[in-house]
Design a protein around this nucleic acid. Structure first.
Lengths: 214, 214
DNA sequence: CATTCCAGAGAACAGTTGTTAACTGCATGG
DNA sequence: CCATGCAGTTAACAACTGTTCTCTGGAATG
């Protein structure tokens, strides 16, 4: 029961990480539901049976990938929502941060976008769970913003959901655009900024509506 | 070279449709990239080799499924954008239409949501192409709406894209919610309506912004 | 009626898959 | 220093995959 330990556990972690990395790379051209256990171990250079020392199945590995991919996304969200400045600055900064994340972790972005609606149930649910946490966090941040005075809880959450979905959509579009020249990327980033702007305008006038439910 | 013909071609179409139907059903629990040719023919009850009389590969069948799935979506979009009435009515009607489509063609909705970012390149591109057509169509409809007076072309297209993505997202969420009781469905539909409302508010005040680029 | 066409069947192929069992060698803990 | 734990190996399994070639029977054609 050595919570800290030496060469032994370190090597195991290394192999485990190699499996995750290899899987992520193989998933560039296919979905998780078609990823084979042998395929992964072959890429790592270990025997197929060694896989079971780390994961019970490929689905299990998929869930671990969810935690890795969305874990790296968590700090970015915190940064975005805590960014100060006027609306236009915040939007530009948000798009920049998303684009930076796509550049830094393209495979993670692809994995989440693909498996969010993918063919493996447990992975879908793991992603959904993480995204709900993000939504709640964003909703909380929005709630403590003076601009949200008078907003109901449900309205805050629907706005948070809109932001989270928009962020994922933008990340995925930027990833696809990476293949098509710098101009295409700029176009996608510009469109994403416009959409955030429109949402921002809607937010600013949300309580103006006749018959508001607040 | 009989362009019209009898029993022969009719039977072929029937088998072809059976392949499409079987594939769609098998795709409930997996992604296209893991769907096997033999798996499909087994479900239909024909020999594996007969598959090649209809499709060159499973990817090919996937492209055919895109046309089937998004073809059925086309008229619905036309209906939504041509709906008359005030903002709130239109939103309610749009959500109803989407919910109705999800009920009528759940497998199609699942297929599109899953394979839009899925592991098969040609299918992704086919879906992307169709969605761009939808976006252009919605953009055009928005342009001929008096409410869009003074809007630039790029702004119209970004709004259209927002609507199309929102529609798909809502459809997918409704599909997932189908498993979780009628209350869950109502909650999802309500949230979707709120989001459309916020976009609608943003649209109404889009040109109010200081330094508008129109 | 004779001929052609072609959707589907059948058999066989070389590869691949997940999973099992029994093993080896080395870092670990007493 | 010796016994244990355990990451990784090897071999073997039944089942499955996509694709080929050859064949068949019935509709279509003239």
């Amino acid at each position: 029961m050595s919570h800290i330990s030496g060469v032994r556990q370190a090597q195991k972690q290394k192999t485990r990480q190699a499996l995750l990395d290899a899987a992520l790379e193989l998933l560039e051209g296919q979905s998780l539901s078609s990823l084979g256990l042998r395929e992964v171990t072959r890429a790592v250079g270990i025997a197929p049976t060694a896989f079971y020392r780390h994961f019970r199945s490929v689905e299990d590995l998929g869930v671990a990938l969810v935690e890795e991919a969305l874990g790296s996304l968590h700090p970015m969200i915190r940064t975005i929502v805590s960014t100060t400045g006027d609306g236009e600055e915040r939007i530009a900064r948000a798009v920049e941060l998303i684009a930076g994340h796509v550049d830094a972790h393209p495979a993670h972005v692809r994995f989440v976008a693909r498996e969010r609606h993918g063919g493996v149930r447990v992975v879908r649910e793991a992603i959904r769970g993480q995204l709900e946490l993000f939504t709640a966090e964003v909703g909380e941040a929005l709630g403590s913003d003076p601009e949200s005075a008078g907003w109901g809880e449900e309205d805050l959450l629907m706005l948070a959901q809109l932001y989270v979905d928009q962020m994922l959509m933008t990340a995925s579009l930027l990833l696809d655009a990476t293949g098509g020249g710098a101009g295409e990327r700029e176009r996608v980033a510009g469109s994403a900024a416009r959409q955030l702007r429109l949402i921002s305008v809607g937010r600013a006038h949300w309580l103006d509506r006749a018959g508001g439910d607040g």
